[in-house]
Design a protein around this nucleic acid. Sequence first.
DNA 1: CTACATCCTCTAGTCACTAGAGGAGCAAAC
DNA 2: GTTTGCTCCTCTAGTGACTAGAGGATGTAG
Lengths: 142, 142
Amino acid sequence: MSREAVQIGEAAKVSGVKVPTIRYYEQIGLLPALSRTEGNRRTYDAADVQRLVFIRHARELGFEIDAIRALLSLQDKPNQSCAEADAIARARLAEVDQRLTSLSALKAELKHMIEGCAHGKIAQCRVIEVLADHGECRHHFA
Amino acid sequence: MSREAVQIGEAAKVSGVKVPTIRYYEQIGLLPALSRTEGNRRTYDAADVQRLVFIRHARELGFEIDAIRALLSLQDKPNQSCAEADAIARARLAEVDQRLTSLSALKAELKHMIEGCAHGKIAQCRVIEVLADHGECRHHFA
DNA sequence: CTACATCCTCTAGTCACTAGAGGAGCAAAC
DNA sequence: GTTTGCTCCTCTAGTGACTAGAGGATGTAG
């Protein structure tokens, strides 16, 4: 119905992506060429804003721009076979799994640190010790 | 006993921090001024290597350089109160918790996508949808 | 019609590295 | 004793993903 097209400031407010970042995303080709007003201002319709929200979420979750680009390319051609999507999804899943493992370990360590700190001096804290000595950690993070 | 002083390559191998990164850390003052050999080569004793391991772990776990600098400064004056270290740890814990929540949700959706993809088209996958619409997510991440 | 917000482009800065050029030190092989 | 080859040195520049600022155009409200 309504051709609700907003300008960049409103798009930023709604999507949660900052104005210069939106322009940056356009520059690197993460957003398609946008329509402009007479006065050369970018306009964003609902789909564009949706795309921005998607990008923000993915970035917050630690996806790199190239991974997001891949996912977006899938979104743009939704009738293809799933082989490609499957490959991308599996790769991301592996990445996510590894991140989860590392973060769980970190969480345990941080809790431990805070508990240790509750009653003492740094000399008794294990923050540094834990991070310096932590034997079973994984070297390759992401 | 042994004044085991190694050169940068060995220090890198043992600590898991790359050679140029070690030099970079020295440059930004994360490592103290190092002793050099006659031929101007950096030498690292056990404590230096320990410090590098500590830094690597902290970086892998998502600590920023400034946070690490703070922790190291605490390490260097270990008789002070823990308040500062505690604050740093608590801040990280909150962030890590949030990240864990988001990643768990994403993992579920990626699994769902892979399952869904086994028999269908991308149109039936929910990853993109989920990332675009995810309502209960938090905007302010770090 | 003048203020003022919002937009435009462009360049440069940030963080935490990473890569490369060009050269010196040092150990062993010929 | 010199040549091969490895590790090291400094220095500059490049990366990813933004972020900040200059300087100017547009669009709206009083």
